[in-house]
Design a protein around this nucleic acid. Structure first.
Lengths: 234, 234
DNA sequence: TGTATTTTATTTGTCGACAAGAAAAACACA
DNA sequence: TGTGTTTTTCTTGTCGACAAATAAAATACA
């Protein structure tokens, strides 16, 4: 009964713990593995990751800073709810950021950016082929984030990333039970967007980005209006 | 204004320490009391606020999340630099957010919002009268933040707040040594913006917001180009 | 039985201490 | 004197423990 075998995986690099916890929790929240409202228990996480509460706490503070979790002082902390009542403000911001990031990408991209963008484009197409919903959602977000990076405006990029994160949660909600056919159209639109960027056609990029965003918004709104009252419970 | 009161009884309320440290450090950073590059020492802050390093650390993590300080792993942490080389990306984002928040305010404001906005408008005018630069800068930011609040889009509001924060640092830099005459014009423009919002004239609000933003940008660019090489050292 | 009050339990916020990592200083050696 | 190596110092990252705040349970009382 000697506890000598505690040396299974105790070797951890010094600053890596918080990032690991942060990344994992973030993914679990965005993929709805931790649905909105899920309680977050610090000691439970500390046991799970075999570390003290301190680095866990730091990761939680960062997640709270991005609005992914909510903390009630001295009480509990839980995964943030999706604000269905104000989805329009989300859509407003999303459409504008789609436009402006695509536009800036057409103006500011460098050759190496296109390589990265095309990589995610192919990842997304592959995910559509294999009908892998989770992968479709995450690679789509990565594709547009890469375009934003090529636009080289960190202020827009960070807001856009936050919006794409929230979008991941909302999309995940619908792909949970439905197997829609719209992804193929999106693959084609992505290709058009890439072409416009490469041609440095700023106005076309703006227009395509806007149209693409509005397609997505319309799709989500259709799904949403179809089953209000079910998902609103979340 | 600030009631630090570090000498009296160390009877603080339980969750108030982090907020106090966060608020104070944030103000000191934005007012350039802590100039870019200033080292942030945890133990020093802990002694100054008579508390443990833990709440200090949490405040620093939050500040880092907003980009106000930068942390080098295992080494040091310091106040973030102002990126003069990419000021144009800052201006791009600032102008767009001025436009969109003013526009949304005209569409979505409620009567009580106008009261708040007018309050900050008068604060700003008073600061201009007394030529109180620090107060001019902070009330100007508060004025536009209040307009953004009236627009009721938290995504835009949070980005705009971050931009206004950065703007506070940049303006502070120039008001340090110059006593320009442009504030009075800004008072008038603020009045015009309020009128457009109150009339729910969305297009006028958009146009005035854009013009106002571009005025500020042009002013800062003029000051900047006048003494590059001096301030670039920061 | 229903309600107010006390007690317990659970979770968070804070603390002091220690160890790891990196920079600076001290040192050895040619 | 200059360079490479070792030692010291200084700051951060992590830990375990304790105290405060709140919720839940238990109890008292009508």
């Amino acid at each position: 009964m000697t506890d000598i075998d505690t040396n299974s995986v105790p070797e951890r690099k010094r600053g890596s713990g918080v990032k690991m916890v942060y990344d994992l929790l973030r993914d679990e929240i965005l993929d709805l593995v931790l649905p909105p409202g899920s309680p977050i228990d610090e000691v439970q996480l500390a046991e799970r990751f075999k570390m003290s509460r301190t680095p866990i706490r730091e990761a939680l503070v960062r997640l709270a800073g991005e609005g992914l979790i909510e903390t009630l002082p001295n009480r509990s902390t839980m995964v943030s709810n999706i604000d269905f009542l104000n989805l329009n403000t989300f859509f407003d911001a999303l459409v504008l950021m789609y436009r402006v990031t695509t536009r800036l990408a057409a103006r500011n991209y460098r050759p190496e950016d296109l390589t990265i963008i095309r990589g995610f484009h192919e990842d997304y197409a592959a995910a559509v082929q294999t009908r892998d919903a989770l992968r479709m959602i995450s690679t789509n977000a990565a594709f547009h984030a890469a375009i934003a990076d090529a636009g080289r405006n960190p202020y827009f990029t960070s807001l856009f990333r936050r919006l794409l994160d929230e979008g991941r949660r909302i999309l995940r909600l619908y792909y949970r039970s439905y197997d829609e056919q719209f992804p193929q159209r999106f693959v084609d639109e992505h290709a058009e967007i890439i072409a416009a960027i490469e041609a440095r056609d700023i106005e076309a990029a703006d227009r395509l980005g806007k149209a693409h965003a509005e397609q997505i918004v319309a799709q989500v709104q259709k799904l949403f209006s179809r089953d209000v009252g079910i998902d609103i419970a979340l």
